[in-house]
Design a protein around this nucleic acid. Structure first.
Lengths: 127, 127
DNA sequence: CGGTTGTCTCGACGTCCATCGAATCAGACG
DNA sequence: CGTCTGATTCGATGGACGTCGAGACAACCG
C-alpha cells in the first residue's frame, strides 16, 4: 500500500450536519462540534495556517511542495507532516504529477468554518 | 457610548496586525499567523467550541458557569480549564458577580477569524 | 541500469494538553 | 464567626503533538 495523497477525508463532504448556523446564533450541537473542531485544530498552528494560506491563495489554484518547503525554517518531513494533517482534515487535496506533488484547497470546509465564526455586524446597519 | 476621540488604544490583545485579509486572497504573514493560530487552536476542541457557542449565543449576552458545567460530562475543574483557555485566547471575558462567575463573548477576534477564513463566493461579484 | 532529486514514512524524543481528585479561594448566609 | 456553595488553582498522569534524522519510495535522466 504505497498509495496515499488522498486518505479519504471522511468528514469533509458528508455534510448532513446542520450546515452553517453561526456560533453566535444558536448553540452548536455536539456532533457539529465534533466535526468542525478538528478542522479548526488543523488550522490552529502557525505553520499550517500559513501553508493553508499559501495553497488557497496560489495563482493556478495549486502549489508544488517544492515551493512550500523552502518558505519555512523546517525540514522536509515536518512540512510533509503538516500537509498530511491538513489533508486528513479535509482542507486540502494532493496530486502527484511526475516528480512533484501539488496541493490545492478544498473550499467547502473553509466555507463552513467561516460561516460558523460569522458574527453579525455590530448593529450599525441592522435591527 | 459615543466613541469619539478616545485617546487610549481600545484594543489590547488584537493589537495592530494587518487586519483581515482572507486566507484565500493573499498569503498570511508569519506574524498574523502567530497571532491568529492560537485563537483557532483554542476553538479546535469540541468542548471549547461548544462552550464558545453557548457563551456567544446566550440570551443576555452572558452565561453563568453554573449553567455551562452541567451541559458536559466533565468535572468542574476541566470546564474551568477550558474557559481559561478561551479567556487567554481573547475570545471570552469573565466577570464575578457575587457567588457566580459570568462569561461573555468578545466578538472582535471572532470577526477576524471569520474574515480570515472567508472564501469568496465561487462565481463573480468581482470584475 | 545506476544516480539524482523530490516527497513521504518511520521511529524517536521532548513538550504540550485534556482530564481528574484534592485543596484553595471568594462570597453568601445563618 | 462558622459553614456552605460555586469556581478556580494545584499536582499528577496518560496521551497527543511538533520536530528531527534516517531510510524508503517515486520519477526523471544520463
Amino acid at each position: 500500500m504505497s498509495k496515499q495523497a488522498t486518505p479519504a477525508p471522511l468528514v469533509a463532504l458528508t455534510a448532513d450536519v446542520p450546515c452553517c448556523a453561526p456560533l453566535t446564533q444558536r448553540r452548536v450541537p455536539a456532533e457539529t462540534a465534533a466535526v468542525l473542531a478538528p478542522a479548526l485544530k488543523a488550522l490552529g498552528d502557525p505553520v499550517r495556517l500559513q501553508l493553508m494560506s499559501m495553497i488557497a491563495s496560489a495563482e493556478g489554484g495549486e502549489v508544488c511542495v517544492c515551493d512550500l518547503t523552502p518558505a519555512f525554517d523546517l525540514t522536509g518531513p515536518t512540512i510533509s507532516h503538516h500537509l498530511r494533517t491538513l489533508r486528513e482534515a479535509g482542507l486540502v487535496d494532493a496530486e502527484r504529477r511526475g516528480t512533484w506533488v501539488y496541493y490545492r484547497a478544498r473550499p467547502a470546509l473553509l466555507r463552513r468554518l467561516a460561516a460558523l465564526l460569522t458574527v453579525e455586524p455590530p448593529a450599525d446597519l441592522r435591527t
